[in-house]
Simulated scan of single mutants.
Amino acid sequence: MKKENRLLTIDGETLMSQPLTPLNFVVDTLLSQGLHILAGSPKVGKSWLALWLAVTVAKGDPVWGMGVKQGATLYLCLEDSTLRIQNRLFEITEDAPANVHFTTNSDTLGKGLEEQLCAFLAEHPDTVLVIIDTLQMIRGAGYDNTYAASSWTSYPSFPPAPKTHSFRRSSFSVQNRFAGF
């Protein structure tokens, strides 16, 4: 027998009478708790933005004038080396806090990543943000590329990251680079 394919609806009276939990924001009105995908063309600054966001939230500094829920952050920078992350950190901050954590390698989905993340969260219960850069690196073998990001939101691009990777601080700060975003 064929399964009935019907929309599951709720009427307005019932919806208005249900107490619902408000969203828990990491960055007020911008980034709520849950899964988000940042997608864009190659080399437009997605990894720079992710790094800046991880550091900014860990510090508790506002993001584009919006308040943040300060806490530990974890950035899985799986296409980078520790040296590259260090160099980028020197470009965006003078004082990376101890509650921003990085790793350049992890297991893949279904092969230990979930356990690694649970262990990190158990060790750092104040974690408010986990960034995985990139999705492709955690998928491993056996995941069909057809089911990559099913949806995403298009955002305007911002200037590409500076090409220098030295210990010298750039006069062009990340906060200024993303101010018009």
Rank of each mutant, 00 (worst) to 15 (best):
V100T: 07
R88P: 02
A98S: 14
T108K: 00
T108Q: 01
L113P: 02
A96T: 05
E115S: 15
G110P: 00
Y75Q: 02
N87M: 15
D95H: 14
T93H: 01
N99F: 01
N105R: 14
K111R: 13
T93P: 01
H101F: 15
E115K: 14
P97T: 03
L76Q: 07
E114S: 06
T73K: 11
A98F: 00
L76C: 14
E91K: 14
S106G: 04
G110A: 06
D95T: 12
I85P: 11
D80V: 08
E114Y: 04
D107V: 00
I85V: 15
R88F: 06
E114G: 10
T93W: 02
V100W: 02
N105C: 10
T103L: 07
C118W: 04
L113A: 08
I85M: 15
F90A: 15
I92F: 02
N99E: 02
C77D: 04
I85A: 13
N105P: 00
A96Q: 08
T108V: 07
Q86P: 00
C118D: 13
P97D: 01
E91H: 11
L89K: 09
S106A: 15
L89F: 09
G112D: 03
T73D: 06
S81L: 04
G112H: 07
F102I: 05
A96V: 06
L117I: 15
I85R: 12
D107R: 08
G112V: 03
D95Q: 14
Y75T: 03
G112C: 05
T73P: 09
L89Y: 10
R88Y: 05
I92L: 14
E94Y: 07
E115C: 06
